[in-house]
Design a binder for these strands. Structure first.
Lengths: 363, 363
DNA sequence: AAGTGATGTGGGAACGGTCCCACAAGAAAC
DNA sequence: GTTTCTTGTGGGACCGTTCCCACATCACTT
């Protein structure tokens, strides 16, 4: 009658009639053990349903094979966020491959609570995602635990960063719209304090300028009917904000004869597109719309949204790989890891004359 | 010079000039300690940046305050899945409140690997999500570790289940479409081996029958022009499947004069709706579309999709709460926990004459 | 026959906490 | 002045592993 919950190595050894040293050797697989002894021990393992305690093992090995992932984000969704969720999915798979388990925490208050928790020697390393503020980084730095930062917004050159090349992506987006003949643009920019949003906008505007469309750049709203470039900055980055802002500026959009909307993320773009559709503006015939992130939703929308993809898979995978190297003691990992952005052309910027595509609203 | 990485309680006690028993009392906060001693110890904590080792603590306490979450799902996205992601978000927050940390694993091969991992006394309890097969449950049962199952598909009455009341939700959906006057229905059902899909379909068809529309139920495709009820079952449940199936059966849909589509999840419904829109069918004027899950996307689509909401928040929160009670030794937790489904009426089933709504395509 | 080496096994310290128990010191009671 | 009680502190076993080292055994050499 094995009513006892968990059996220790000592009990296992006793049942097998060997010392716990020997049992340990069989279980962990390093060290000598004669075939018959091995056999006896393994039989005892079966009988007791013995499972070695990872805790005790971690204690002596001073290694947990756990990685802590903390997502700093103030609003839901956090894990189910279309971009962070994808990164986490990849982190989980990469961790599995390298033998790590993932401790996941979200921190909505930017407090140090969850960080503290992780620092209690529960994990071998840390992956910090999103809105990282200096105080968190400084705090983590105090403890000699390896960590990498994903999509953070600090410029600290010591920190190992993994980011998408948002500036280049913004430039590509500008090229795409320019090539399609758009000259009067409406730009819906997400919160400027976020690294991605500001770089995407910067990259876009710089390229536009290079292409010969003079742009007056301004941190706030800039209306420049002469060149047809309107930048509206939003303090939020969700679908609802896109709806709100586009509704608010719909008049200006029409008045200035804009033919395209570019947004620094897909949610804003979709919100804007929805407003256009509801006003009877045909996309892409009357106006093109382009986003950024390549969220799942973008491909499913009607019409499908042209966007710039972010290599979430690469970022997630490498975050684990690089962290593993840091944990292993390698110090020469690259500090700045940028991931390419690629324009994904879909129907929302593709006029019929440009390409064959399934029809829309032939009523 | 504190170059040493982590300091132990012994070192801390030494610096403070007390025994480690005393230091432990100050740190953990139970037991006597005079103010001056407490002061000395706390000063030493600051100086050494002392952090107690959670591993050592777990060792002696035989309690980790960790909960393992395993999502059994064969395809990506897993964490970023619109429904499971939301549940995980809630689990994370509820766990935080109760002082637990979350170990997250995904298991795409339905293997016992990740389960094994968790069973190595790393966690106090287990939350098993999705496609659970009997072998996993049987395996976990062998070890006396508390666990709950979310949205699983086993019928084992011993297992603590948390599920949405899919049958009732399906019935509500049927009522909604019936009330709006739809009599010829096209039903796009997800894989029947999944608990949710089969129950939603069953609930829907039963209610339809009660409402006086005779239904010939069949596990495969059933075409019954007399009553206008067409059930198509899909082996997959994604957006693409919705597109594929609707494209395939578009002819039948028109021929039978169907006025509404009901799908057992939102992804299928959106796929179907996209096909209809591309064929120039106006939604909701020419045909209503209704899904299930209330994914984020549903509200954002154009037109917004009427759907049935699943109480992901309630399920996620209670999964942790119930597990906590099990961990605490309570045995009398309810075995079957059902969460209400609620119809969320949006534009995709709302004709203009029913309600005022923003215009569509007034070209 | 004694020495040498290979081979397999066991003893026990260590990891870093918790917590039971012993005990010292001073206060209160008689 | 001795006993009893209270209050604060220290000693040390213990949790379940790993791993170093000691040692027993036996075959093989010289």
């Amino acid at each position: 009658m094995n009513t006892k919950l968990n059996h220790s190595l000592r009990e296992l050894a006793q049942l097998a009639g060997v010392s716990k040293s020997t049992a340990s050797r069989v279980i962990s697989g390093n060290g000598y053990a004669s075939p018959e002894v091995r056999e006896r021990v393994l039989r005892a393992v079966d009988e007791l349903r013995y499972k070695p305690s990872a805790v005790a093992r971690a204690m002596v090995a001073r290694r947990t094979y756990n990685i802590g992932v903390i997502v700093f984000r103030d609003k839901l969704p956090i894990v189910s966020h279309t971009l962070y969720g994808r990164i986490i999915d990849e982190i989980l798979m990469a961790a599995e491959e390298l033998g790590y388990s993932i401790f996941l925490k979200t921190d909505r208050e930017m407090s140090l609570r969850s960080t503290d928790y992780m620092l209690e020697q529960r994990v071998d390393g840390l992956i910090l995602i999103s809105r990282l503020q200096k105080n968190v980084i400084d705090y983590v730095k105090n403890f000699k635990i390896p960590y990498v930062m994903v999509n953070g917004s600090t410029e600290d050159p010591d920190v190992v960063h993994l980011v998408s090349n948002d500036e280049a992506g913004g430039a590509r987006a500008a090229e795409h719209l320019y090539e399609r003949g758009h000259r009067r643009l409406f730009i819906l920019a997400g919160p400027g304090e976020h690294r991605s949003h500001s770089l995407r906008l910067a990259g876009f505007l710089d390229r536009i300028k290079q292409l010969g469309l003079p742009v007056h750049r301004s941190p706030r709203t800039l209306s420049d009917p002469a060149h047809g470039i309107t930048v509206v900055e939003s303090p939020e980055s969700g679908f609802d904000s896109g709806v709100r802002l586009m509704t608010e500026h719909y008049g200006a959009f029409r008045a200035q004869g804009c033919t395209a909307v570019f947004s620094t993320n897909d949610m804003l773009a979709l919100g804007a597109m929805k407003v256009l559709l509801e006003h009877g503006v045909r996309v892409p015939e009357d106006a093109a719309v382009m986003g950024y992130d390549n969220i799942e939703l973008a491909a499913m929308y009607h019409p499908p949204l042209t966007t710039v993809s972010v290599d979430a898979a690469g970022i997630g995978r490498d975050a684990v790989k690089i962290l593993d190297r840091l944990i292993g003691g390698e110090g020469d990992v690259p500090r700045l890891n940028e991931y390419a952005s690629e324009v994904i052309v879909r129907q929302s910027t593709t006029r019929k004359e440009d390409e064959a595509c399934s029809g829309i609203g032939n009523t």
